[in-house]
């Protein structure tokens, strides 16, 4: 492994250690634990969005798949009385299945069309949840979604995972595994096909890559992850509401995108960074809650205009500014400060 590789690994290990040490550190302050729990769940959702950018598409529909995951999980646990873990997996699979069903027409179109379609999907799923009262509780919301309940943990004994402080471990654990899978995918051979498709989809088809097929795989995996985050959320919040202003409204699709871009969409840790920073800012400005969206919106605009590589990309950005300055000083003009070199 290279030196950079080791540093990265070390950072990750540190992060995981801190994540699991947090409940002990925040023993006195269980509120913050719920914030960090939600942060983990959101990070997964944003990462699923970033995963779709690997095929050069912007999905505004991840929230829709989270809705499906959340309500499917609730229904499986409450109506079919399936235990937590199988239900978590089944509901995510269900969300992936829905994605598979719509993938073909969605992925035949590109760019703006794809974004519009996914946005419509998210809104449609929300409206179905809103109106399908018998299944979802409708506009009043669904209450009493169970958590994992009491479970035996080796060496510890019985733990009640419905307590927020304990559910935190489950949420963070599941999200970490999910992120590891996503990370693996970016290192797997399939990422090369995605990159080829992203760079030039006509050429990719001409060299024999099944463009729609590989895009479908990407889209379905992303939907699985979004569904998983939705299911985790259902058991975290215990009640679900399909209101416009709720977590499942259009504005959440928007927030996800902002989280990703502010963190840096070209980096795997971008979603984590963006979600953390923006959620912490939101917490810090809790007293003036009305102004929160304004602050988030302003940050989004400023970042995309002045730091297109996001917060994680700041070092690279600074290097590129320096280079431009040097070139300007040397009398080379017309260089593009935000110019993106290909990914290293």
């Amino acid at each position: 492994m290279t030196k950079r590789g080791w540093t990265k690994l070390l950072l990750w290990v540190g992060l995981v250690v801190i994540a699991f040490a947090l409940p002990t550190i925040l023993r006195r302050d269980p509120y913050w634990l719920t914030v960090f729990c939600l942060l983990a769940i959101n990070t997964l959702l944003v990462s699923s969005l970033r995963s779709v950018t690997l095929i050069n598409e912007i999905s505004l529909g991840q929230v829709g798949f989270a809705v499906i995951g959340a309500y499917a999980h609730a229904a499986l646990m409450m109506k079919a009385h399936i235990p937590f873990w199988p239900s978590l997996i089944l509901s995510s699979l269900f969300s992936a299945l829905i994605a598979l069903a719509v993938a073909y027409p969605f992925l035949k179109v590109k760019g703006i069309y794809f974004s519009i379609l996914t946005l419509l999907t998210a809104e449609t799923f929300r409206l179905v949840a809103y109106y399908w009262t018998s299944m979802t509780g409708g506009s009043l919301g669904l209450t009493g979604v169970p958590g994992p309940g009491k479970q035996q943990v080796p060496f510890v004994g019985e733990v009640n995972f419905d307590r927020p402080a304990n559910y935190y471990y489950i949420a963070v654990g599941v999200v970490l595994v999910a992120l590891l899978i996503l990370y693996w995918l970016e290192r797997a051979y399939i990422s090369f096909q995605w990159r080829a498709i992203r760079d030039d989809n006509l050429l990719a088809g001409a060299v024999g890559i099944n463009v729609i097929g590989y895009k479908t795989i990407n889209f379905v995996i992303a939907a699985f992850m979004a569904g998983l985050s939705g299911a985790l959320f259902a058991s975290y919040q215990h009640n679900l509401s399909p209101d416009t202003t709720s977590r499942f409204g259009v504005s959440m699709s928007i927030y996800l995108l902002v989280y990703m871009v502010v963190g840096g969409k070209d980096y795997f840790v971008g979603p984590l960074m963006g979600t953390t920073v923006l959620m912490l800012i939101a917490e810090a400005t809790r007293s003036s809650q009305q102004y929160q969206p304004m602050i988030t919106g302003a940050i989004a605009i400023l970042v995309i205009l002045f730091l297109p590589m996001g917060l994680v990309g700041i070092p690279k950005q600074v290097r590129s500014w320096r280079r431009v300055k040097r070139l300007r000083a040397a009398g080379v003009d017309g260089v593009n400060p935000a110019g993106k070199e290909g990914k290293a």
């Binding site: 992203r198 760079d199 030039d200 006509l202 050429l203 001409a206």
Partner: peptide, 13 residues
């Protein structure tokens, strides 16, 4: 196999 009229390459590679 095909070579396009415009230089079609995988740009980031």
């Amino acid at each position: 196999a095909r070579v396009f009229q415009k230089n079609a390459l995988f740009r980031s590679m």
